[in-house]
Design a protein around this nucleic acid. Sequence first.
DNA 1: TATGATTTGTTTGTGTGCAAACGAACCGGG
DNA 2: CCCGGTTCGTTTGCACACAAACAAATCATA
Lengths: 148, 148
Amino acid sequence: MSDAPSRRAASGTEAYQLDEQVGFLLRRASQRHIAIFNAGIPELTPTQFAALAKTAEIGPVSQNELGRATAMDAATIKGVIDRLAARGLIETGESPTDRRRVMVRLTSEGRAALARLIPSAQAITEATLAPLTPPERAEFIALLERLG
Amino acid sequence: MSDAPSRRAASGTEAYQLDEQVGFLLRRASQRHIAIFNAGIPELTPTQFAALAKTAEIGPVSQNELGRATAMDAATIKGVIDRLAARGLIETGESPTDRRRVMVRLTSEGRAALARLIPSAQAITEATLAPLTPPERAEFIALLERLG
DNA sequence: TATGATTTGTTTGTGTGCAAACGAACCGGG
DNA sequence: CCCGGTTCGTTTGCACACAAACAAATCATA
């Protein structure tokens, strides 16, 4: 159905094909992953789950520090924490040593939810990588880590 | 600094390390790319540029079709088109054959802007992939395409 | 041709994601 | 001790991204 690769744009747009650009491909892969996540864990967003999991990993943390650990800026992590707290999965308190800090820690409910959801999260990771063979998955993850 | 890989979480969270999950890595890589894009092309968002470039590729299209071609749903593409039209880079009109359709085409301004920005866009792609060697870049793109 | 299903676009609501501007608290050097 | 720089958190404003619900137009087929 036509000579696709040597396709020439009508105007002066040269050989810029959107579908070959990393940025576009990254966005599409993220979208697909998020769709898989929403199907597997409907009760939490990927971002909320990330904050929950990271809090479990690194224990009680200040809000901004948790944001840094999960790649969310101060404005974003605030909303995420507010919503998790409203659901009773985490709780916030003041720091004994720094009055500016808002400390974040899991509730037992949060801990239970996390334990319950981790298998689903692992399945989601696998489903996302399903189109690749196991060695390809490892390779992909390794390359992706270096682009962070 | 400690036995990192065999690190054991205090609670029952088992071996779920956020920083190893594809979803998290995809989000981080996207964030980095978007930051590079914003620095290289401050006047347009990556999404807006994608819509502009795709419109140039596939000529006059209906709004929803352009959305499909750029991986944006109907609600999203509408906002993007509204903003591009407000800037005079594209213009919309009615379809002669289907009264529901909103046809989208580049203005000469849009065409000029695109021609001017494509080199920057290419530089942005390269900068995003800079941490990888050329063969790794090709490999990464190939794997990423299959995760779309 | 009627009519039911599909498609196109719109609107609303929620959730990231980031820039910018701000006040409060902390920290270091003089 | 004071003072300037930094960090912590908040708020506002804008831009995706998607679900859900909707009206209008088109299509398929009985």
